[in-house]
Structure formats: structure tokens, C-alpha cells
Amino acid sequence: MQEEVINLIGSTLEIETKDITNKTNLVKDLDLESLDLVDLVVAFEEKYNIKILDQDIKNFQTVQDIVNYLEKNV
């Protein structure tokens, strides 16, 4: 799951994935902006056919957070 997530991040945002780990912080380490986050959220919604609520987005601090969320809701 973790690998899938990292790859999706890489392809959606068109960035390198080799240094991304589960501990990577989206904002602090990857320098992601709101637009990037929304982009990611929509990408995840499409791939896993889920609806991600706005208020959940603030919990996506690290890659691990996303993995946990998906594991719980997919």
C-alpha cells in the first residue's frame, strides 16, 4: 500500500519518489501547497473510489497518515 501511495504521489505531482518514505511530511519535506494537496486528494479518490472529506485532509501530514487512512477506509 505504501508503495502504491508513494507512486501515486509521484505521478500526480510529477515529482521524484526515490527519497519519499513513510515518514516524509507532505508540507514540510515535499513543499506541497494547497493545490498539490487537493490534486492528491482527487487522485486518491479516483484510484480507490472513495470520498475523502475536507476535514480529514488536515490529518494527512505524512505519507504514513495517508496509508493509515486508506487502509481504514478502502
Binding site: S34, V38, D54, Q55, K58
Partner: peptide
């Protein structure tokens, strides 16, 4: 949309659609 949620200080959790 962004300027509004930043004005509120709530970030994306406010929901841009709102």
C-alpha cells in the same frame, strides 16, 4: 477560494466547495 480559507485561518478543512 484559497484566499478565503486563509482569511479564516482554517486551511483546506473548511472545504473549498463551501
Amino acid at each position: 477560494k484559497e484566499s478565503y480559507v486563509k482569511y479564516l485561518g482554517m486551511g483546506l478543512s473548511y472545504g473549498l466547495k463551501n
